[in-house]
């Protein structure tokens, strides 16, 4: 019998460094207005939480990268990274 694992994956999608991030700029502006003086920069992205059931296959990393590139992020404007978190 094989193991069935519950795996949680967090995908972080962030605007590329050289891409203007109007939302991040608005957040930075608001934080500065609140008296947050040491703020240098704010960037806003998104977190996508995925829950998987079963054993990750051998090509799991490659298929995660593919789905991140093709769907979850737009490589023209965004970077992505993902990490596995054991959900028990």
């Amino acid at each position: 019998m094989s193991f069935f694992l519950n795996v949680k994956i967090n995908v972080f999608v962030t605007p590329k460094k050289n891409v203007l991030d109007p939302q991040g700029a608005a957040i930075a502006h608001a934080m500065t207005s609140l008296g947050f003086k040491d703020l240098k920069n704010a960037r806003m992205g998104k977190v996508i939480e995925l829950e998987l059931e079963g054993e990750p296959g051998e090509d799991f990393e490659a298929s995660m990268d593919r789905v991140c590139r093709d769907l979850l992020s737009n490589p023209v404007i965004e970077d992505y990274r993902w990490s596995i978190e054991d959900a028990g």
């Binding site: 109007p22 939302q23 737009n74």
Partner: peptide
């Protein structure tokens, strides 16, 4: 069309928000 790669580039949030 940009997302599908049929046109180059991308459209992001308006600068004015």
């Amino acid at each position: 069309l940009c997302e599908a790669g049929l046109l180059p580039g991308a459209l992001i949030r308006n600068e004015c928000l």
